[in-house]
Nucleic acid binder design. Structure first.
Lengths: 211, 211
DNA sequence: TGTACATCAGTGAACGCGCGTTCACTGATGTAC
DNA sequence: TGTACATCAGTGAACGCGCGTTCACTGATGTAC
């Protein structure tokens, strides 16, 4: 009964081939299913079906792995934002939709999202930091769209960087408040989206009364 | 030579008298000096000069201690915000100042600030959560001021809760971005304040162009 | 095409560590009479 | 005011645990000739 077919794709090989990515995928799975606390080197290796020492051939230490996870998450977020921008470039409520996209990403990848904003995963000052590049990438996606909307007159003219920072602050702030604060424990996604659309609208229109 | 004065205030007593607060103070000190990672039950007790088992007479477990720390921090933040509101109630840039106050608090108490926004320190759903009460308190300080400014016509009329949420989102978002993101690593307080004042101004005035 | 050899990428055992928590205890305090 | 006793708030030892990291190793792969 034992099969003579030699190359069953499932058969474990001594050399994995792409263990680095497999470890990151395992980390993502664990983050999703067991939360941030489950992300120990040993647990991630176990999840990937590999001895924990193997991880050291692909990451210098635990922080290096977590940093890589955060970088991947920033890239995934950037892709989501890019997609939303492409699909809604001409919508009058494009910024609201971007806010909702950001929120949805955070709620759907809550544990990963937390790793994206952790100063202790940054490289020491002066050292090139791939996490910085990744976070700048996501930010740049927003800046590009802000620039478009400034050019076409939908947004006020001004430094697109500064305007992007305000926008990012608003959606990031509300997202983390919803994600971490007891007040919003158990909120429905739909209600959360409603909140973030409202907040973005207030940023667009301003909350001050100009008489 | 041994003193016969019986009540030297420094002499350690078997019964501490106020160990609960002493532990929280020790936790604050550690958070300040060694960062969030130093906040283990054992380290906190050591810092307070007491056996680690003693802590269990005052907190049910480690999370209970950290929750109490977060609650204290929310109360401290509320006090800072109240003070800023009192001192600047009539300033034209009162909201900018509130933003700067929030930012300064976070930068001056970075490790504690991180514990204030951690879903895993919340009580399970359905259980009364003192952390929720504390966070609502700080938020209420903002809401009250928003309400004042809506009544006097400085802010547009509207639901003060919603407007407060937008304001809180903006200042909380930028604060955590500055605190956690590699891009702003090592930024000077003064520059950070400049950023947050700018972001608040954009929220007040709006970023959309109304033709 | 075959072989020797360097290199790569795994394994499993071991190290030392500090953690949260529990337990039986003891010293100090407060209270009833 | 003194005494017996319950209660409170500490102590220190112990438990078991899983962690990050290192090490000598071995199996698999790639390359030079």
């Amino acid at each position: 009964m034992s099969s003579s077919v030699s190359a069953s794709p499932k058969r474990p090989q001594y050399h994995h081939g792409d263990l680095r990515n497999a470890l990151l995928e395992a980390a993502r799975t664990l983050a999703q299913e067991r939360g941030a606390d489950a992300l120990t080197l040993r647990h991630v290796a176990r999840q990937a079906g590999v001895s924990h020492a193997a991880a050291y051939h692909h990451f210098t230490d635990k922080n290096d792995l977590l940093r890589a996870l955060a970088i991947q998450a920033f890239k995934a977020l950037e892709i989501e934002l890019q997609r939303a921008i492409q699909d809604h470039a001409d919508d009058h409520d494009a910024f609201e939709t971007l806010g909702a996209t950001y929120l949805r990403f955070a709620l759907n990848h809550a544990a990963e999202f937390r790793f994206m904003f952790r100063r202790d995963l940054c490289m020491p000052e002066g050292v090139p930091d791939p996490l910085e590049i990744a976070s700048r990438g996501a930010q740049a996606a927003l800046t590009a769209f802000v620039h478009v909307r400034q050019s076409d007159g939908t947004l006020k003219a001004g430094d697109p960087q500064a305007t992007t920072l305000s926008f990012w602050s608003t959606i990031h702030g509300l997202t983390t408040i919803i994600l971490e604060t007891p007040v919003f424990k158990g909120i429905e996604l739909q209600n959360a989206e409603h909140l973030i659309r409202g907040a973005v609208r207030q940023l667009l229109e301003g909350i001050a009364d100009k008489r």
